[in-house]
Amino acid sequence: MTQTNSQQHQYRQIWAAGMWDNNIVLKQSLALCPLLAVTSSATNGLGLGLATTVVMIAANALTSMAKGVISKAVRIPANIIIIASLVTLIDALLNAWLHPLHKVLGLFIPLIVTNCAILGRVESYASKSPLLPSLLDGLAMGLGFTWVLTMLGGIREVMGSGTLFANASLLLGQHFAFLETTVIPEYRGLLLVILPPGGFLILGAVLAVKQKVEQLLTERRAIAAAPVTGG
């Protein structure tokens, strides 16, 4: 295998890990606190997901660049300072220049500090890896988090309020107003699904489905690998 090939292989693995194999929510079961608090609608899920992705990429990059300087014993406080400063920085910059977006995301940004998944990535990956793979790892893990949040928010929103991507144009701009759909007109709402306990129930169901899918995939692979017998 040539140098570039093995590198490509490595990048593909990082991508697959973030999206599915080692997904923050589905596999690592991290970041459940912001997850349950925010995913009452698909738009909210998407908002927190994107904000987290940005912080994750930046935190991974900074940690990777500083890994030669930061000694092992003090790496955790050092990393926490990096993450907390980044979040504060992004909060202030968004508030000053992208104020309408900040009004929608404002609630989520301080929540990012509580997200143990970011410290997890910095600790287990970026503090040992070169810059480029660390950037990719932040992107993959962040987008993996984003799609799970958006899906969970979507399920809860449809079941709880009968809409999907309500107020998406407030988050993404007027071009995305077409995303806003009413799935069940005149729906009276199911409060339980919108409140945090509903989040736990739906998350449980999603994890069960993920397990089943993986089981089926493994079985299929086993069948495909088995020698064909008889006729």
Partner: peptide, 29 residues
């Protein structure tokens, strides 16, 4: 010595950056 110095330097740098950004964005906010 190195470790406490390192932590102090990181804290100082973070505080400096945050103060500057605060001064810069406060009127805008």
């Amino acid at each position: 010595g190195y470790q406490s110095g390192l932590l102090a330097a990181i804290c100082g740098l973070a505080a400096l950056i945050l103060v500057l950004v605060e001064l810069w964005t406060r009127p805008l906010i």
